[in-house]
């Protein structure tokens, strides 16, 4: 089925609990390949928790419990036979605050491939990853310097390069620009537009203008449920659900 093969990731009747707190309530949603999907919603609506379901990050939280399926290229990632580490290679993640390792720029990008026992040309892989993250031109002559000496925006692009170095299919981005200034934000947003040629991207953002600018599809979450999911152009000009309307026009927040 073409509709299925077009879907790289999907949630099917997904429920998530942290202890007794029911965080996600029966979410069903498909993520289209080579598209940017934005998850928006007020604080505490479950959008970051939902994002973390896609690479089994919630397993790391004690007392969390998942029901329902997350399928990645048709396979249930929560299947006991599936290796969580392998899932996290294929589905990379970029966090809100840039979190480079206290190592050189080169070693940050080379870290994942080395752990995986990469046998190819590591220098070439690092260069390709830095180029794809639009950072190469700024750092190519100081790859041996500490990553911590980079600016916040550069550090975030380094984290993106680090995620790309293990050749993922999907990038999960959790508020990737919230700690960055407008110029760095614009760079990351441009980069997202370029990256979707090769990767499928899911981005959680509090900034609705950013969701409108960078994404193709937008899902609005409220209290653990998907209220509306559709083409970004439609959601931001003609939302169908009054709750979406109220949220994106700032009538509640």
């Amino acid at each position: 089925m073409s509709s299925t093969s077009n879907q790289v990731l999907g949630a099917d009747g997904l429920n998530l609990w942290y202890g007794t707190h029911h965080v996600l309530k029966g979410i069903t949603l498909g993520i289209t390949r080579h598209r940017v999907t934005a998850l928006i919603g007020p604080s505490g609506c479950g959008k970051s928790s939902f994002l973390r379901c896609f690479n089994r990050m919630n397993e790391l939280i004690p007392e969390s419990r998942v029901e329902g399926r997350i399928h990645f290229n048709g396979r249930d990632i929560n299947d006991p036979e599936v290796d969580a580490t392998e899932v996290r290679h294929r589905i990379g993640m970029v966090f809100q605050k840039p979190n480079p390792f206290p190592k050189s720029i080169f070693d940050n990008v080379a870290f994942g491939p080395r752990v995986n026992g990469y046998r190819g040309d590591l220098g070439e892989l690092v260069e390709t990853s830095l180029r794809r993250a639009a950072l190469w031109d700024e750092v190519h002559d100081r790859l041996g310097q500490s990553a911590l000496a980079l600016s916040g925006g550069q550090q975030q692009r380094l984290c993106i390069a680090r995620a790309l170095a293990v050749e993922p299919e999907v990038l999960l981005m959790d508020e990737p620009c919230s700690a960055l200034d407008p110029a760095s934000t614009a760079k990351i947003e441009d980069l997202i537009g370029e990256l979707k040629e090769r990767y499928s991207i899911i981005i959680v953002t509090h900034n609705m203008q950013q969701a409108a600018r960078v994404s193709d599809q937008t899902a609005f979450l409220l209290e653990g449920e998907i209220v509306e999911y559709g083409r970004t152009g439609g959601i931001f000009t003609r939302p169908e659900d009054p709750r979406t309307e109220d949220y994106i026009t700032g009538r509640f927040g």
Partner: peptide, 9 residues
């Protein structure tokens, strides 16, 4: 204000 939805319309 970067209006959205109804406000934009």
């Amino acid at each position: 204000q970067q209006p959205m939805a109804k406000d934009l319309r």
